[in-house]
Design a protein around this nucleic acid. Structure first.
Lengths: 348, 348
DNA sequence: CTGAAAGCGCTTACAG
DNA sequence: CTGAAAGCGCTTACAG
């Protein structure tokens, strides 16, 4: 545990001032190429790594972004979505030598408080907002705070911050038309939390598509994404008089749970029931039969979000209220239908 | 976006020195109760939040701990284990107003490099080492570095750092004796990565327990924890001449995959095959029948690890090479058998 | 109990 | 191109 080497040590060893060392290290003008090379060599030899706190204090930036997650431990664990998203985010951040600070919160109020504190402390330079809601207090809050932020979800009308999103409507149309082509006329959907933006976008898309097809029924039940609710709703659906011949689930966890219920009731899949899952995690390939799903590249989605946030942060210093940057909206590739064993034609 | 308030502002408003403000804010002696109260009131009114970087630079501590995860995006996502662990860790850290810095790495070399950099930068005050191996380079590396660290796993012989762990041997005995009591004589195990410490501990425990019972066979296949390998090994096991009547999986993901294969082969569960999973995530209740599992409180495990690390960090300043603290070993409650529908007696 | 000052390790105008 | 100096916002001995 030797003493940490600082720019003062390098300056002494190189026989120059600390300022010169800083210029050399940061690749800025102010030193000749000769001294720059010498300084760099000495720094490398001494194993110099700049102290973050000192740098942050000087440039008034944390070189870190934050994510506050408002989900319970068990919900977070079971949803492959978040870990995949975080993987993508983290990979991009660390490539830009940004750190990722994570905090789990219980309520919106707590979440807002975390943002306020992080920003006041300068613990982060910006945040990523997950689980965007239809009417989301956080959006205005961070904008008012002046905290750089990117919404991971959208599109958001009248946004005061950039959003990274993918079209949820198109995949909804795809899957419904696919099921229709397979002969399904009674389709049910186990949807996510109604307060989430993408749930409401899907609600609308399904309703509009259904209106254009002569379906016998298209019912939707909202849930909290847990396997418990997925199973419970499925049980109710499958016990009804004219039960659906196909069920679409808004996440993979509920689809797996629904499949379990179908097995429990002795239904043959896909002969007696077709099942579709959103979010093609490996979970979908674990079941028998494997689940037909709507696959998105979630790590790429996280990556893109991090990228936009980093550009927002670096842009922020130069021209603060840049409307063009703020309302920047990036659309990712929509979910693709990935048909597997859990869907099939309705027997004549 | 008003200017951030600093202790200088408070000092000016209160008519005292910056030093007095610092003493008052940190609850240290050096100010009278009267001025302390006045300073605190002004600070609260002005919405003061101390700048992290400045504090870190002064006290030479980051008020943050780091976790480097060496797993792929998809493996991380599918394993509820990590998110649950992180939830527990994070809850405890933020209660102590420590931040959590997360990084995902590809190789051990990268991981070691991350530790070196984090410590040199003072980006973290300590790290949590997950996925402890039987022969783990990281242990000596961080000890040599002088970087405070806690191993999340153990027990570790000749440890130079504290370990938080739970006994894996006892649950192994429990489950094997339970299966034996149900009449199972041909038991198979789909184990985790052989390089991981807990895998080898379980290997030994099963072997020793099996030796004391008159089993016909007790085979073990090692895997990488993915559903793919779980399914593949299960297929092989169930296609063999004298196939096992019970299979124990080292994680829940493989157990779910194994159950899928059993369904695929038309086996009745538990009549023709009993299935046991380690790690009782909600995943185990999603299947039909629900999986008998070995349940641990993983968030609590993470919590405890974070707690030990924080105490190690605060102890570190006072008496650096404290052997008693360093080799501190905390044993958590071992996994408990949670019987559900996937296990049953062997038909006569 | 209180104030003035130095220091943590960087960055960045500002003179030479 | 280079050096000396001030400053980022805290903490902490050190005198009064």
């Amino acid at each position: 545990m030797t003493r940490r080497v600082t720019i003062a040590d390098i300056a002494a060893a190189a026989g120059v001032s600390k300022g010169a060392v800083s210029y050399a290290l940061n690749g800025r003008p102010g030193v000749s190429e000769a001294t720059r090379g010498k300084i760099l060599a000495i720094a490398a030899e001494m194993g110099f790594v700049p102290n973050r706190a000192a740098r942050s204090l000087s440039v008034s930036s944390a070189q870190a972004v934050g994510i506050a997650l408002r989900r319970s431990a068990r919900t977070l664990g079971i949803e492959p979505y978040f870990m995949e998203l975080i993987s993508g985010i983290e990979a991009t951040l660390s490539a830009g030598s940004f750190g990722l600070t994570l905090q789990i919160v219980g309520t919106v109020e707590e979440e807002l408080e975390v943002y306020r504190r992080w920003w006041a402390e300068r613990r982060v330079d910006g945040v990523l907002l997950c689980d965007v809601g239809t009417s989301d207090r956080r959006l205005d809050f961070v904008a008012d705070l002046g905290l750089p932020a990117v919404a991971v979800g959208g599109p958001i009308e009248g946004a005061r911050l950039p959003a990274v999103w993918h079209d949820d409507a198109e995949p909804c149309r795809d899957i419904l038309e696919y099921l229709y082509a397979l002969g399904h006329r009674r389709v049910a959907r186990v949807a996510g939390l109604p307060r989430l933006l993408h749930t409401s976008i899907r609600d609308t898309a399904y309703a509009e598509t259904a209106a254009g097809l002569d379906l016998e029924s298209m019912v939707t039940f909202h849930s909290d994404y847990t396997g418990e609710q997925g199973a419970q709703i499925t049980r109710r659906l499958l016990s009804s008089a004219r039960r659906p011949t196909a069920i679409i689930y808004d996440n993979d966890v509920m689809a797996v749970a629904g499949l379990g219920v179908a097995h429990e009731l002795g239904l043959e899949i896909p002969e007696q029931l077709s099942v579709v899952a959103w979010d093609d995690s490996p979970l979908c390939r674990l079941t028998h039969p494997a689940l037909t799903s709507l696959a998105r590249d979630i790590p790429a989605y996280g990556s893109k979000s991090a990228e936009v946030l980093m550009s927002l942060i670096s842009a922020d210093g130069t021209e603060p209220p840049n409307a063009a940057v703020r309302t920047f909206s990036v659309q990712c590739r929509p979910a693709q239908l990935s048909p597997r064993g859990s869907t099939g034609p309705v027997p004549a």
